Amino acid sequence: MRTVLQRADGASVHVDGERVGGFTGPGLVALVGVTHEDGPEQVERTARKIAELRILREERSVLDDGAPVLVISQFTLHADVRKGRRPSWNGAAPAEVAEPVVDAVVAALRERGVRVETGRFGADMRVSLVNDGPVTIVLDV
């Protein structure tokens, strides 16, 4: 599982012009890409890192500040661009595998007491954020 975490001062996601998730103020945007091998262990490790990494201002975590997380499924994080001009998506899990894994990450964060907003799986989404810092971290689990 690969996750790109971005510290944000506000974020939103829209589908067909409708806002389906987001937050104002400080929080994290988590772009989550699932591979064929990802399962419960990767879900737990990813959720723990998202909740506990001290990457908010003053070395605080989402749990320390009660900050929200916007989780967006993003299979393109597993693009293979080593050959040619067209990315290969073979490393990304198909939707029927990936969707329950992303849902499990969301559930694991909520079980930790994190306020989680989401996009809509498989939709053509418009994600906006104000990257704070900028702080962007790639988390490979």
Rank of each mutant, 00 (worst) to 15 (best):
T76K: 04
L77T: 12
L77M: 11
L77D: 08
H78W: 15
H78M: 13
D80F: 11
V81P: 11
V81Q: 13
V81M: 14
K83Q: 15
G84F: 03
G84L: 08
R86I: 10
S88E: 08
W89G: 13
N90A: 15
N90T: 15
A92Q: 09
A93G: 09
P94A: 08
E96Y: 04
E96I: 10
E96L: 10
V97Y: 11
A98C: 08
P100W: 03
P100N: 04
V101R: 07
A104Q: 00
V106F: 08
V106S: 00
V106T: 02
V106L: 06
A108C: 07
A108W: 03
A108P: 02
L109D: 06
E111S: 06
G113W: 06
V114H: 02
V114G: 00
T118L: 01
T118W: 01
T118R: 12
R120L: 15
R120Q: 15
G122A: 07
G122T: 04
G122W: 04
A123V: 02
D124T: 09
D124S: 07
M125D: 01
M125R: 03
R126Q: 14
V127N: 06
S128Y: 07
S128G: 07
L129R: 02
V130C: 02
N131M: 00
G133R: 04
G133W: 05
P134V: 03
T136W: 01
T136C: 10
I137D: 04
L139K: 10
L139P: 06
L139R: 05
L139T: 02
L139V: 05
D140S: 13
D140W: 02
V141A: 13
